[in-house]
């Protein structure tokens, strides 16, 4: 049996009574493909950062450094949009 949420801790009517908490919903846990960056090929054009629908591309000092996998659904848009084929989509391993 799965571990269901404790009903006593839930707000009634499936209401979320605080704002700005969608970040806490980890959408990355049902990913089947993971983006892997080949850092040598990357020219930091940040096209992937613009296209990523889940804001998972990490940019530090205007440089692409990797992915925030907690929210990455593995859609592959970053790999598809990369002009230098610097991103490969690889099978998730359990």
């Amino acid at each position: 049996m799965v571990n269901m949420a404790d009903y006593k801790t839930l707000t009634i009517g499936d209401r979320v009574i605080t704002a700005g908490n969608s970040e806490q919903f980890k959408t990355g846990d049902w990913r089947s493909l993971t983006p892997v960056l080949s850092i040598g090929k990357c020219i930091n054009c940040l096209t992937c950062w613009i296209y990523c629908p889940d804001s998972c591309v990490i940019v530090e000092n205007e440089k692409m450094t990797g992915f925030k996998l907690s929210h990455c659904k593995g859609c592959g848009i970053c790999a598809e949009s990369c002009p230098k084929d610097a991103i490969a989509m690889t099978e998730e391993r359990a």
């Binding site: 799965v2 571990n3 269901m4 949420a5 404790d6 009903y7 839930l10 707000t11 009634i12 009517g13 499936d14 209401r15 979320v16 009574i17 605080t18 704002a19």
Partner: peptide, 28 residues
């Protein structure tokens, strides 16, 4: 309780419930 028009306390109603939440909400 937690009305949508209480603008000082923003809330969301009728969200998607996965299997871990649907049954507990029904039990409530």
């Amino acid at each position: 309780l937690y009305p949508l028009l209480d603008v000082k306390h923003p809330v969301s109603h009728n969200l998607m419930d996965g299997p871990l939440f649907y049954f507990p909400h029904k039990y409530q």
